[in-house]
Design a protein around this nucleic acid. Structure first.
Lengths: 131, 131
DNA sequence: AATAAAAACAGTAATCATTATCAACTTTAA
DNA sequence: TTAAAGTTGATAATGATTACTGTTTTTATT
C-alpha cells in the first residue's frame, strides 16, 4: 500500500461517510460537502472512496439504481433496501451469526465477507401508500 | 402488465439464462447467442432481461465490476462471488432459512426478498495461487 | 524559511454499462 | 388480408465511474 499524505478533503470525505446512516453514493457525499468545500471535485470523492475501499475502512453495501452505496460502519450488520425510495437502512439482527468461518468449511470456498440484504418496502413508503 | 407477443429471440434469451449456472451478465448472454442468431442486438438482450425482471422470472444476484449479474433460478439459495475472477457460484445452504416473513416482523419493514452473499476466493482461484 | 520530490487535486475527457429512440419488421386477432 | 400492437436492430443518449494532465499541497530535508 502506498504512503499517503495528509489531506483535509480526504478527511472530510471519510468523516461524511462515517457520520451518516444514509449509506451514501459518491455523488451524495460530494453534494453534501460541496457547499462547505466549494473547490471540491467529484473525481476526488470517487478517488478517495476507492482508497477507503482498498484500505478496508469502508464497505460496499449494494447497488441502487446503478449507484454504488457505501457504509462507513464496517461492523457486521445487515441492510434493508427499499424497492420504492431506494433508501438503505441498517438492520440490527443481533441473533444472526456473522461468524461464517465454518459455514462453507470443507467446500474449498474461502469466505472473506458475508452480506445479508433484505429488499422490500420501508416504513415510510409503506405509510405513504405511494404506488 | 402489458401483453406480450411470441418472440423467438425472447425465448432464446430466457433459455440461455436458465440453462447456465454462470449467473451471466447481459453481454455474456448476448455473446453466447450471437453466433446462432447473427442479427441479435445487445439492446434486445437488455430489453428482455428487464422484462423478465418485471415478471419475476429471473432475479438480480449482484453487481460484479460494474456489471449486473442475473439468475434464472429463482428458488431460494445463496451465492458466492469470487473477489479474484468475479465468477458467481450457487451455494447450497439448505440449513439456512429463507422464510424471512417473521424476521423483521413488528419493525415496519415489509420484506419482499432476502439475499445472502458470500465474498471471497473460489476453489479454482485458490488453487491457482494467482495474486 | 527555502526547496525539491511525492502525493493530491480540479477540471475535463474518456470509458463503459445501460436505456431511449425510431423506423422497419412480426405477431396477433379479427 | 389487414390493421393494430408488439418486437427488433441500429444507433444515439444517458449517467456512473475512471483516466488524464497540469497545478497545487504536503512532506522531508536543508
Amino acid at each position: 500500500m502506498a504512503k499517503h499524505n495528509f489531506s483535509s478533503k480526504r478527511n472530510a470525505i471519510y468523516d461524511m461517510v462515517c457520520s451518516t446512516d444514509t449509506h451514501p453514493s459518491a455523488r451524495w457525499v460530494y453534494e453534501k460537502l460541496k457547499p462547505d468545500i466549494p473547490d471540491l471535485s467529484l473525481g476526488t470523492v470517487y478517488r478517495n472512496i476507492a482508497l477507503f475501499k482498498d484500505e478496508g475502512k469502508i464497505r460496499v453495501v449494494c447497488n441502487v439504481n446503478g449507484e454504488e452505496r457505501i457504509d462507513g460502519d464496517i461492523t457486521p450488520h445487515s441492510h434493508f433496501i427499499c424497492n420504492k425510495c431506494g433508501n438503505v437502512y441498517d438492520i440490527c439482527d443481533k441473533q444472526i451469526t456473522f461468524d461464517f468461518s465454518s459455514e462453507l468449511s470443507g467446500t474449498g470456498y474461502i469466505v472473506e465477507s458475508k452480506f445479508i440484504l433484505y429488499y422490500g418496502i420501508c416504513p415510510e413508503c409503506s405509510e405513504k401508500k405511494i404506488h
